[in-house]
């Protein structure tokens, strides 16, 4: 395939294009991951897992742009990681089936659809009134605690909670109206495989 020829071209014996990209952009990669997961402690893990996954793909020979591939994999791993941090109430119920399996591989298809869903989420957020939008973004984009949101906006924690509840509802209805009840498999992840 085209890709192989390209990958081989710049590869010398010791370093692969991916490894070179990894070494060259490691700091940028860490900053990028940090932004997504908000937790300094986990950055190394995510970056390393991303590299391992990308490396595996490289061996299989289907990487076109090592650097951008690496960042995309890192985003995927980071998003998986923060999703697993969400506490799912159904985990406390015995009779509920665990949400479907953790997605190991992900494809261009998933990425396209994820972009599309992100766009819909953005529009849902855009439709919120300004104050509520701010609270919601501080929680979901920046992973701030309810307490620190309350402090930085000078409102009470219960007001923050009320804003979140309404934003939750409005965004959910908005996204649901666009996509129906179906969710792409890649976002249905449980805590299985966490250990």
């Amino acid at each position: 395939m085209i890709t192989k020829a390209k990958a081989d071209k710049s590869a010398d014996k010791k370093s692969t294009p991916l490894l070179a990209a990894y070494e060259q952009h490691l700091n940028a990669l860490k900053r990028y991951v940090m932004r997504i997961i908000h937790a300094e402690n986990d950055v190394e893990d995510v970056v390393q897992e991303a590299f391992m996954r990308a490396y595996k793909s490289e061996i299989e020979g289907d990487i076109r742009q090592p650097k951008s591939y690496l960042f995309r994999v890192a985003k995927h791993v980071a998003l998986n990681q923060i999703r697993q941090k969400v506490n799912r109430p159904t985990d406390f119920l015995e009779d509920c089936d665990p949400a479907s399996v953790l997605v190991e591989s992900w494809t261009m298809e998933d990425e396209v659809l994820a972009q599309e869903r992100l766009g819909i989420h953005c529009m849902a957020v855009a439709a919120l009134p300004p104050r509520r939008r701010k609270v919601y973004l501080m929680r979901k984009v920046y992973g701030m605690s309810q307490k620190s949101i309350a402090e930085s906006l000078g409102i009470t924690v219960s007001t923050v909670e009320a804003h979140l509840a309404k934003a939750f509802k409005e965004c959910h209805l908005h996204v649901k109206a666009r996509f129906g009840d179906s969710q792409p498999e890649s976002v249905r992840q449980s805590k299985e495989g966490r250990l």
């Binding site: 952009h25 932004r35 951008s68 985003k75 923060i82 999703r83 984009v141 249905r188 992840q189």
Partner: peptide
């Protein structure tokens, strides 16, 4: 509800510190 809340975590990739440039190629 929990599926949605979980999915909405994807919004975190929009966090953009002003000082740092966005990685290219993404």
């Amino acid at each position: 509800a929990e599926d949605f809340w979980c999915e909405a975590e994807m919004l975190s990739q929009l966090a953009v510190p002003v000082a740092q440039p966005k990685p290219e190629g993404l």
